[in-house]
Nucleic acid binder design. Structure first.
Lengths: 178, 178
DNA sequence: AGCATCATATATCGATCCGATATAGCCGGC
DNA sequence: GCCGGCTATATCGGATCGATATATGATGCT
């Protein structure tokens, strides 16, 4: 799904500024979607000229003014329509797996450092997800999507931890990097 | 990692044409990287003008001629250098999780169809990975990267299957879509 | 006190990448 | 006999990322 429609989705949860939309992605949705400012701000402008959102400006004390966007009726039905036509596709880009794939070109120390860094990253992501897992009032689908993210990340952790020592051992004996 | 350097990586495994590079990604590496022709062909041209690859043309009977690329010494060391500076980052974009997140806006039938389609997709990806898992002669890192992909996909399958009926049940009782 | 860094909030811009499209001949199936 | 799929090239528009810019306040470190 493109950034425009993703923004419609977040606005479906409540009015928000571009900055707050980004925050929502970072905090709760980053394990499956995370568009940048460079696509969010132009998207909001296009949504406005398409009539799917309206803008109001909210001045703040000692802060830059917010431009808060709200869904229109058309925007709401547009999102429902897009959602019902969206295919459940998943795309992963992992430089970690890439590094593992070419590990024979690295030293064992480098490989060990990479794996360790990866473990740390997953652990941090996991904590972020577990922090929002506690909420009681979520629809079953939202709960499922968070639990899904946690489960998959835990599977990664478990697999890496289980095979780490064997990987490093075999790597050492396979031959030093050219 | 960008497409240029990814191509260097594949060429590190052996000479190949642009088409064959794409095939390699589709067959063995699609679970973590899968650049398109639209970035591969321009990348190969840039690699050539940078002196990191050389091109030779191989005519074929009743087929378009191949442009086969080979790594130069500079290309080889360039890849080693890039590899040792690459961070083990992972980025996922999942429209499946997105659909789950907004499932309260869909009917239970729609949700059931989406989950089923997702299961089918994972099963097919899994078969593709398991087909190359059998090879005996792979370096430990390559084996690890394939096993990692399989394990994570199996974790997805397991989780979805386990929670499917409960999700649909709760979804039904949560309220019909607006 | 002074300085750096982070958070809030906007926005743009170049580089990159995807997805669709075009071309073209062969092969296999219905 | 034709339609779709495979081999093989390539381009182009649009979408997206990542870095950068601007401005101010709060926080924290030395």
């Amino acid at each position: 799904m493109n950034t425009q429609d993703l923004c419609l989705g977040v606005l479906h949860l409540g009015d928000a500024s571009g900055y707050e939309i980004k925050q929502t992605f970072e905090r709760a949705l980053s394990h499956f979607q995370s568009p940048s400012y460079g696509s969010i701000y132009p998207a909001l402008r296009k949504l406005q000229s398409a009539g799917w959102v309206t803008q109001r400006i909210e001045d703040q004390d000692k802060r830059p003014a917010k431009k808060i966007y709200s869904l229109t009726h058309e925007g709401r039905s547009r999102f429902l329509q897009v959602l019902s036509q969206t295919e459940p596709q998943e795309i992963c880009k992992s430089d970690f797996v890439l590094l593992a794939f070419f590990a024979h070109l690295l030293s064992t120390d480098q490989l060990a450092a990479i794996v360790q860094q990866h473990l740390n990253t997953i652990e941090m992501d996991l904590e972020k997800l577990q922090a929002i897992q506690g909420r009681e009032d979520l629809p079953p689908g939202m709960r499922f999507s968070i639990d899904y993210g946690i489960e998959v990340k835990q599977a990664r952790l478990k697999f890496v931890r289980k095979h780490l020592s064997r990987l490093l051992q075999e790597h050492q004996h396979y031959g030093d990097p050219a």
